Computed example of a mutant assay.
Amino acid sequence: MKHRALDEVYCSVARTWSVLGDRWTMLVLREAFAGTSRFDSFQSKLEIGRTLLSERLNRLVEEGIFDRVRYSEKPERFEYKLTRKGLDLYPVLLALMEWGDRYKVEDPPVRLFHKACGEEADPHLVCSHCAEPVAYGDLRAEYAPGAW
């Protein structure tokens, strides 16, 4: 199956991966969550080619993850602002970061602190009803007709 064809599969993971599943997209999102919004800033922080970055940003705009907002008319310049859909990817980024901290680096490069209490935070997935932590084996899946 071609990578781009994943958006045709009746599977939430496959369709999400068709948008996020290349090596630069999550890094662009990481920078956006860190406050980067302008093309030149993305390019310098990521050390990515202009064409590749332009393709990734355009795809994220097409998907409704970023809004492209003009901030200068002469010369014409744009910022990329996370939409609600984009902000909803924050837990995905946190999960990837947590996994990377556990398995890919000895000393995590970033520590997170909860603004409300000031303490170091270890975000995790919880049940929306009882607030208990959720891990593999704690959930039961019921498949819709036609899924997989």
Rank of each mutant, 00 (worst) to 15 (best):
L94Y: 01
L87K: 15
D107W: 05
S128I: 14
E47H: 08
T36P: 01
P108M: 03
A121Q: 01
G35W: 00
H124N: 09
E79L: 01
D88V: 12
G100M: 13
T36N: 00
L57E: 06
D101Q: 07
R56D: 06
G118R: 05
R111G: 05
D138W: 04
W99Q: 10
T51C: 12
H114K: 09
H114Q: 14
T51E: 14
E47K: 13
S37I: 02
L82E: 10
G137L: 08
H129W: 09
E62H: 15
F66N: 04
L93G: 11
R56H: 09
M97C: 07
V126Y: 11
K104P: 10
V126P: 02
L96I: 13
D107Y: 02
S44E: 08
K45F: 01
R50G: 13
R111W: 08
E120Y: 00
H124C: 11
E73N: 08
E62C: 05
F78N: 08
F42K: 03
R38C: 05
E31F: 02
T36R: 00
F113L: 06
P91Q: 06
A135M: 03
G35H: 00
I48V: 14
A95K: 12
V105R: 07
E73Q: 10
Y136D: 12
R102D: 11
L94D: 03
T36D: 00
L125K: 13
G118F: 02
D138H: 12
G86R: 01
E63K: 06
S41N: 14
T36E: 00
Y90E: 09
R102I: 01
H129K: 13
L93E: 05
V126C: 09
D107V: 11
D138N: 02
V110Q: 06
R50Y: 15
D67T: 02
L87S: 14
L93R: 12
V61K: 02
G86C: 08
R59K: 15
R84S: 15
S54C: 10
Y90I: 01
V92H: 15
Y136R: 15
A32P: 07
E63V: 04
A116N: 09
R77D: 04
D138Q: 02
E62F: 05
E62R: 13
